[in-house]
Amino acid sequence: MAEVVFFLAAIGALAGAVGTVAVRNPFYSVLALVMHLLSLALLFLLLRSEFVAAAQVVVYAGAVMVLYMFVVAYVGGTSMPLGPGGTRSMRIGSIVFAGVLFVELAIAILGTGLKALGTEGAPYEPGFGTPARIGELLLTKFLLPFEIASFLLLIAAVGAVTLARRRGGLHDAEEQRITPLDLVRPVSTGTMAEAVGTRTNATTRERTGLEYGGHSGRAGPEDGDDGERTGLEAGVAPGGDTGPEDR
């Protein structure tokens, strides 16, 4: 029974791997990799490591592949041909390289002389590979790698947010720098006048006092309700610090 399951899972994993490499459309490539990961989880179960199998299915085939799907859909999964020049030779060369690599790995594996290679492995003891055993190992013997891994995840998350920002780079961090001058806001900050655009944050910062005096005499399209608005501005002005930035 175990042999049948092993061969089914191994064939599924290998077919998924070949499909990932060979399929033209990246969308189907991701789907083939999902199949590969599920088959690999079955192999992990045969090796009696239940926790890693469950993590493989939940984290890899679930979360990471969904991330891939989103990016493939966003970038617009265009099928990328191998390109002009060296199409056939590149493909043949890579197949030859993969074959040579496999032969070398097989020689390295089978030539090690490890006596346990031909056996089923160490006798099974209950509790091997369960979450309890893994958690105990992670929090005692491998505490430092555990903490470093959590730190690595934090750094990767911050780096991904920085890389995929809207402006796409690190160049314009200067534009939105907050200075101590921003604490002293002009009078009309956060009012409807600013939203309409008759005065902006940057231009009114220096000449607030000057312009505020001559405000009612200024010609504008909505000149009729101008007097009412200046009264409103004067009332709102002390709390104007919480107004929206114009970005």
Partner: peptide
């Protein structure tokens, strides 16, 4: 199944990935 079968499958997958 003997352990070496798993290692052979692993080597095959690694080679396919490297070729890709």
């Amino acid at each position: 199944m003997a352990i070496e079968w798993y290692l052979i499958v692993s080597a095959l997958i690694f080679s396919i990935g490297a070729g890709g």
